[in-house]
């Protein structure tokens, strides 16, 4: 088992939920498959899906829901 830090692909605002009243895409501890959605980044009035590039378990998110994020900033830790 090793832990990998996954970086944000874009600058913008990070969302962990598809809509305010809906549950998060992923909770800490959840398994995630490659290509599965873990969040959204909003920039220039566009929401871009953040997809897992590899499978594993999400150990923890490093950016809070609705918080600003920079491209390349650590977004979450993945146990693989």
């Amino acid at each position: 088992m090793s832990t990998k830090t996954i970086a944000a692909p874009l600058p913008g605002t990070f969302y962990r939920r598809p809509a305010p009243e809906e549950p998060p895409f992923k909770n800490e501890g959840d398994p995630v498959a490659a290509g599965e959605q873990v969040g959204l980044i909003e920039v220039m009035k566009t929401f871009t899906a953040v997809l897992a590039e590899e499978a594993g378990h999400i150990r923890r998110f490093l950016v809070e829901n609705e918080a600003p994020v920079m491209a390349g900033e650590p977004l979450y830790e993945l146990e693989i």
Partner: peptide
């Protein structure tokens, strides 16, 4: 390209 570091 790698991640954006500075500028836009």
């Amino acid at each position: 390209f790698d991640f954006l570091k500075r500028g836009a």
